[in-house]
Design a protein around this nucleic acid. Structure first.
Lengths: 161, 161
DNA sequence: TCATTTACTTCGGCAACCTAAATAACATTC
DNA sequence: GAATGTTATTTAGGTTGCCGAAGTAAATGA
């Protein structure tokens, strides 16, 4: 097998690992993957809006509404009307929500971080360089991607509305 | 931003790029991502069964049945009863199906392959080494992954087979 | 032969999407 | 300051993807 193939296979494995893990992670929190992703976004921003979530996740606002409904039902987030712009509804994470996120055994990322930090300096540099190179080769868009490794983002991107 | 974060961000970008691309690819063929994935699996094997597809994609047979129904509706695959085991139904790609796959502008992989092959020898080696390393760090299972880079597989990956 | 297993489909149901349309509120403009 | 447009969100209705359970048909085997 030549190197192109080897690299493609490795990429596929990476994708597969993150995807499979994403589901488990969500399920360990009693949520679906999509719901967990929303919760993560809210947790990351602390406070956000349906619009922001829909842009970040690249799904329609309608979808976000439905997902947030579920999270509200679970008591993980709250909807609070914005005072500055009464069209807006801020979505804030609750204490329960934060605990849910924190207690989720983010095993994949933890393992990755653990192993990564155990590597030597030059190995770390090499990995960063290569991943960024590959990312550029795939022409990944220049989005503001938070440093959270989570298959979540890749399941229901959609060009959203 | 430290190197762990940089690598995670790059990984996310890679995941996002492949996922977003997967949808476009499928849509360019007038199919959904899941349907396209099935078509790819069938194309790859030339002839297969519902069971095999469900294992490869890690979805239930019921799901495969539904997806294959769609593809049959589009005239992209055919169901042909096995002669050796009459419980089995072989799913074979049609000429139309093959053309659909072939004409799908597999832009992501094409670009990747083009850029990859343009790299110097040592760069290629480095990329392969790093991707395999990362893949191992994420503990991607040891599956026989075909050398096809396609976001498809990451949505309902399978342990292949 | 009769029970079991295997391969597949059908059915009912849920989650995640989407678009279009409805609300409500901010923004403009004449 | 009323009409018009834009923005933020939800509601309604529909499709797809997915599952488990149950059903059918065929192979297997005791």
């Amino acid at each position: 097998m030549d190197r192109v193939d080897s690299s493609l296979v490795a990429l596929r494995r990476i994708l597969r690992a993150t995807e499979l893990f994403g589901r488990e992670l969500a399920e360990s929190a009693g949520l679906t993957a999509a719901q967990f992703r929303v919760l993560q976004v809210v947790a990351e921003k602390g406070q956000t809006t349906a619009k922001e979530i829909s842009q970040q996740m690249r799904v329609s606002q309608a979808t976000v509404t439905a997902l947030v409904d579920k999270l509200v039902g679970h008591g993980l987030v709250q909807r609070i009307k914005s005072l500055t712009d009464r069209r807006q509804i801020n979505i804030v994470i609750t204490e329960t929500g934060r605990r849910t996120i924190e207690s989720a055994p983010d095993a994949l990322q933890q393992r990755y971080v653990r192993e990564f930090t155990a590597l030597s300096d030059w190995e770390q540099s090499m990995i960063v360089a290569v991943l960024e190179r590959v990312s550029a080769m795939l022409d990944a868009e220049d989005l503001d991607v938070a440093p959270v490794l989570d298959a979540g983002d890749l399941r229901q991107p959609g060009e959203a509305g």
